[in-house]
Design a protein around this nucleic acid. Structure first.
Lengths: 153, 153
DNA sequence: AATGAAACAGTAAGGAG
DNA sequence: CTCCTTACTGTTTCATT
């Protein structure tokens, strides 16, 4: 999955991350090239899967999603069938922003965004009724210090 | 910061999140309206701060960022000056994708993306040399089960 | 809601290294 | 032969009527 990228590619990616709304001409000017080559590089990186979806970042609080939890999960079950069911449940729930399988004592971590603590409890109850879980710790975010989708290039 | 949004606004936001590249005409057709009203709603939501930056989501692994850590931090220091320094350090480091101040025993959680474990160690060493930290637990992600910027509407 | 000017994306043809 | 520049066309944005 590794792709060879040169300096120009990285500059273009930086611009695309920074502001996906700007025109090709603008990007070309900033990276010191012109439209067509920039467009061709973008197309290639898109095909290679380096560049994914184009989206607007919305303000969670303005949308009434005031509560953010990080959920640490331990389970006693490690069978394939259980895992399949658990993964499907996570993918199906839109309040789950992130889910990772971990190395070490804690098996999974989730990031969950909900309107309030009550909504988190509903989510939690629904989840443990769907799949057996050994131990859950919920960490409540008091303040989002930083949140970025910009990857370091 | 709460804004009143009707069904039409939410449908438009859903489309903008789903694919920020599509044209106004396309969005208008999908939400069952026409170009001008959709455009006006988008402008208002932009001004209200509901709609933020427009970006491309890049593939971290294709860019050689193979390691993702969740870092749980406890500190003994809770003075304003220390906190300022800590926050500034986190904001300045591009490998820190997320940082939250938490309620409870653990004070902070970070999400950190780096090329490999060595790079994480460099980050860690640099961080603890900048600010005093009582206790750190790093959780290594083995598998990204889910990762989305799409907020539930 | 329709119109229109300005800007833009995408493509094609030709030129430089 | 590859990558860049320039030129052109249909589409889109955004403001005005």
């Amino acid at each position: 999955m590794a792709v060879r990228l040169d300096d120009m590619d990285r500059k273009i990616l930086a611009e695309l991350q920074e502001d996906a709304g700007q025109s090709l001409d603008e990007i070309a000017r900033k990276v010191g090239s012109s439209k067509t080559p920039v467009w061709n590089r973008i197309r290639k990186m898109r095909e290679a899967g380096v560049i994914g979806r184009q989206t607007f970042i919305l303000d969670a609080e303005a949308l009434g999603l005031d509560a953010c939890f990080f959920v640490l999960i331990r389970t006693s079950e490690h069978e394939a069938e259980w895992q399949q069911k658990f993964l499907a449940a996570l993918r199906a729930r839109p309040e789950v922003q992130e889910a990772h399988r971990l190395a070490g004592e804690i098996d999974y971590i989730l990031k969950v965004r909900v309107p309030n603590a009550r909504a988190y409890d509903s989510f939690y109850q629904a989840l443990i009724s769907e799949v057996r879980i050994f131990n859950v710790t919920a960490l409540l975010s008091m303040e989002e210090i930083k949140s970025t989708t910009l990857l370091p290039l």
